[in-house]
Design a protein around this nucleic acid. Structure first.
Length: 337
DNA sequence: CAAAATGATTCTGC
DNA sequence: GCAGAATCATTTTG
């Protein structure tokens, strides 16, 4: 306290001795003839902590009512403003955090934030489904379930956010009141209060970011749980399987359909081109893995003489040298020759 | 209900 | 970007 006070006085180029001199003070503040010695006041402020609580309380009140108080207060605020104490917090003047922006955008895209589509989103979903294009598969049920879960996440997010915001304003109010209260006895400028509010808001927004982060994670998990195509897999129809198998076994020497061929197969089987590609990818590797098991199937679709593949099949089943020593099983060669 | 089959995804190497 | 391989998640089968 002593050193601090001394430092502050030193800032404006005065020693305590200078202040202690009534003539100097009079010159400095251009006052008429102060009955009270300002040096004396400062001395009282400096030693206030050495007094007992009651004494200090009384002293504070007395000083507070002193007619020089406003002037002295503003001077002290100014000194503090110039000192290193108030330099902190200035550097954190960045705009909207890119991380927060990213999370906000994602939450908006997933429908967690943004316009509320009613508390009964499940009902809205069923309406959308019944009005939808095809009333075929059971995906509508999954869809409503997804909407329900998403609505739940949204509800949680908003209640949590509300709690945080309430806590933030409460805490800010509390701190502001405290600082205003304190500003009656120690130099706390409005600017400083403003800065403190900024710091509090930053802290709370970093907490909010954690909420947003975990909400994003929850939505991602939900998405992977419901929107992952693997989870709503349907086997192709027998007819489609026949078409695909027929192509595969009649092109066994080179079972790599061109883009056009894939498109045609896709149309024939009423599936997508990528599904055709998936099918051929799976088929090639599984055929290769187990030629013997598929032997009968091959005959079924190509009506080829069994002798032509049986030797290869037995090779494929043999446990020796799966990778070295030449191609073990398939009729085709991966290089397309 | 466990195993097999199957469609889709992910990872790696080219 | 594609093919192969491994793997996942679901459906079908015995």
């Amino acid at each position: 306290m002593e050193d601090h006070g001394h430092m502050m006085l030193g800032h404006i180029g005065l020693s305590r001795e200078d202040l202690g001199d009534p003539d100097n003070m009079r010159k400095l503040h251009n006052l008429g003839e102060p009955q009270q010695d300002i040096g004396n006041i400062l001395q009282q402020i400096m030693t206030i902590t050495e007094e007992s609580l009651d004494e200090a309380q009384a002293r504070k009140h007395a000083l507070n009512c002193h007619r020089m108080k406003p002037a002295l207060f503003s001077v002290l605020c100014e000194i503090k403003e110039r000192s290193a104490l108030s330099l902190r917090g200035v550097q954190e003047e960045d705009g909207p955090d890119p991380q927060i922006m990213r999370l906000d955008n994602m939450l908006l895209a997933e429908g967690v934030t943004g316009l509320e589509r009613g508390g009964d989103s499940a009902a809205a979903a069923t309406v959308a489904v019944t009005a939808g294009v095809s009333p075929n598969d059971g995906s509508s049920l999954e869809h409503t379930e997804y909407r329900e879960k998403l609505a739940h996440i949204r509800h949680m997010y908003h209640t949590e956010l509300e709690k945080y915001e309430q806590a933030c304003t409460e805490f800010t109010d509390h701190v502001m009141n405290l600082l205003r209260e304190q500003s009656r006895t120690r130099p706390v400028s409005p600017k400083e209060i403003e800065r403190m509010v900024g710091i509090i808001h930053r802290k709370f927004s970093s907490i909010q970011m954690q909420l947003k982060q975990s909400t994003c994670e929850a939505v991602m998990i939900l998405r992977s749980r419901f929107l992952d195509a693997r989870r709503k897999r349907r086997n192709f129809s027998k007819q489609a399987a026949d078409v695909l198998n027929e192509y595969f076994y009649t092109h066994l020497a080179n079972p790599y359909p061109s883009e056009e061929a894939k498109e045609e197969l896709a149309k024939k089987c009423s599936i997508t081109v990528s599904q055709v590609a998936n099918w051929f990818g799976n088929k090639r590797i599984r055929y290769k893995k187990n030629v013997a098991k598929l032997h009968d199937e091959a005959n079924l679709y190509t009506r080829m003489p069994a002798a032509s593949v049986s030797s290869e099949a037995s090779q494929a089943n043999s446990p020796v040298t799966p990778k070295s020593g030449g191609c073990p099983a398939p009729c085709y060669t991966p290089d397309g020759s």
